[in-house]
Design a protein around this nucleic acid. Structure first.
Lengths: 360, 360
DNA sequence: TTGTAGGCGTTATCAA
DNA sequence: TTGATAACGCCTACAA
């Protein structure tokens, strides 16, 4: 595999390397046609490393996410990649939600990428490490509370939680619970805050027993839902703060034979592929994950062209409620209207997957 | 942001750059302690591009997949990344199952990566392009029929399809259909072949009407299932050749009110996150996607250390059948045994409490 | 429009 | 053990 360089092309064409280089960067040259054919013939490709060395750029950006197999992050990455076009290469790095791996990744990436799209696991880490990175970073879905100078692309997390609570309330629920993500992560904290705020606004108020702080994992959602069901007075409505916990929570519900929505109403944050295939179809707070990724990439690309700009940009991705079938009037309300209970029971009696019901 | 180079460190310590370089690569130097502290003090980091230029290596490999938001590929990437450790950076490239983008990606990657893990969309493309790449490529899940020299890591696709057919047959099905992937993709072709072979072996034989060649997408699976249901004599059992088509097929079934498994039995290739949350739980052919990715990365890393080895390595990832609830005795068979129909009907009114069984 | 030559930061060779 | 120096392949003043 003989390595063919710009020099080979030049000597073959009979011009200097400068001419070839000029041609390569779109300048005007006389022998354009011949150069083109020789490049073809020799199958010349510019050496990127050499180009990088000169330019001080790598034309590569990193996308650092906690877990690529989480559908949300997969969609995010996809959107970011699409937005980058062919001008930039994206190196995806998985951190497994591990702060240590995050720090290593950053160190490892130094000098190899022009910038990064970064979804940190916690808000608290990276107090100093980031300045060493010395390159633009766009924070997505999370940010560092102390650092205002970085560009961010966040979802309207608080609003999402509010929408969920408002929807529950409008159906008559007052025993509303949240399976929250970690409070030291931006979405975890903001969604929990939005949840509380909406509850306060609606005069219902938050019941501490109905706030379970979990960890954004499926196992965490499973445990949290069981914890709620074990309460002497379980909630009639549950808001799950992300998709993986939704999976877990729904599994817990299924395992315990608790029916949705007749026994418990449910809303999850972030839509997921099979949300319409399961019974009942799950009502969710949704946002456009691909759009969020694309926006982040655009922000980063803009920043790369405007490194000296002092203004930081903060985008907010809107959320919306997708009403499906997992929310209905609360069970307690039914009990006060016994004629309706019978009606409902005879309807659901052929659903067949009922086991023991949760006592209230 | 002053860029500090090896020269700065050298002059500060009072030695030559050669000494610093030697230190950096683990050689013995007298001023080791002082060098270490100066590097710390100046916050020196080697310039990767320069190092690459010299060494001709980038310590980066590409992972080229059709769609990162497909759970299978997400898991594959995850596995590959884990296996790479910190020694290699992985650049993930999405091709959107687009051959043109694939070719561009390869061209774009030239010189920036030391090698690639490649999941091509079709078997037929890249007849020549690959040699231009000039770097080791490990083919995963797909390969090029004409090219035996590349390492491959494939799943035991044919066996998977056979397992599905055998399971259907053992329950008494004879009207067995396949929603196949494209026949110019390795898994599409191999699974279709395994399907036919198993049907031949079991003396049932393949019915051309029961072979729908689709495209591995959700929409494709949806259309294909509808096509099967529109037949004068629909199949009693359907095998879907990948997860996305399974989603689509199940949606079609749901939309048309066809019950699984009482009306139709179903097996999908590749397990998916929510396979146990939907009713009925879906029986699938499974393989370890992360293990497959890890194996591919190991193969690539081995190859990078053994560039001159002429032997190509071909690994096969085993598959297994996970029995859940989507397969039962065929409906037609029931009809010929009317006394059993009633029995079955009362049974299925109480479905969904079976436990999951994994054979092997 | 073209060519010459210096330099990007690092590593490797070869003397010392 | 060390240091001077020549690459690595490309780009870009600057001069022609």
């Amino acid at each position: 595999m003989p390595v063919v360089t710009i020099t080979d092309v030049a000597s073959r064409v009979g011009v200097s390397v400068a001419t070839i280089s000029r041609f390569l960067s779109g300048g005007n040259v006389r022998e354009e046609k011949k150069i083109r054919s020789v490049i073809q013939e020799l199958n010349y490709r510019p050496n990127i490393a050499a180009r990088n060395l000169k330019s001080g750029r790598s034309a590569t950006v990193a996308i650092i996410v906690p877990d690529i197999s989480n559908p949300f992050f997969a969609a995010l990455v996809r959107g970011a990649e699409k937005a980058s076009g062919d001008s930039l290469m994206a190196a995806i790095v998985n951190t497994d939600s591990n702060s240590e791996r995050e720090i290593n990744a950053l160190a490892n990436l130094y000098g190899r990428v022009d910038g990064a799209i970064f979804v940190p696991t916690k808000e608290s880490d990276h107090k100093n490490g980031l300045s060493h990175f010395g390159r633009p970073i766009v924070f997505v879905d999370r940010y560092l509370q102390k650092e205002k100078k970085y560009d961010t692309v966040l979802a309207d997390n608080a609003r999402g939680a509010e929408l969920a609570v408002e929807h529950f309330a409008s159906e008559g629920h007052t025993k509303i619970a949240i399976i929250s993500g970690p409070l030291d992560s931006t979405p975890g904290r903001q969604r929990e805050e939005g949840f509380r705020k909406a509850l306060d606004n609606s005069k219902i108020g938050a019941n501490p027993n109905y706030v379970i702080v979990s960890d954004f994992t499926q196992a965490g959602g499973y445990a949290a839902m069981n914890q709620l069901l074990d309460l002497a007075e379980p909630p009639t409505a549950v808001f799950s703060s992300n998709n993986l916990m939704t999976y877990g929570a729904l599994n817990a519900l299924k395992d315990r034979g608790v029916r949705v929505p007749s026994d418990i109403s449910f809303i999850g944050f972030d839509d997921f592929e099979l949300s319409t295939l399961i019974s009942p179809k799950i009502t969710v707070i949704n946002r456009d994950a691909e759009a969020q990724g694309a926006e982040a990439m655009r922000a980063l690309m803009w920043r790369l062209e405007n490194m000296d700009s002092k203004i930081s940009k903060h985008s907010v991705i809107p959320v919306n409620l997708i009403k499906r079938e997992s929310v209905t009037i609360p069970r307690t309300w039914d009990l006060q209207n016994s004629h309706k209970v019978k009606e409902r029971q005879s309807q659901t009696s052929d659903h067949s997957n009922n086991k023991e019901k949760v006592n209230e």
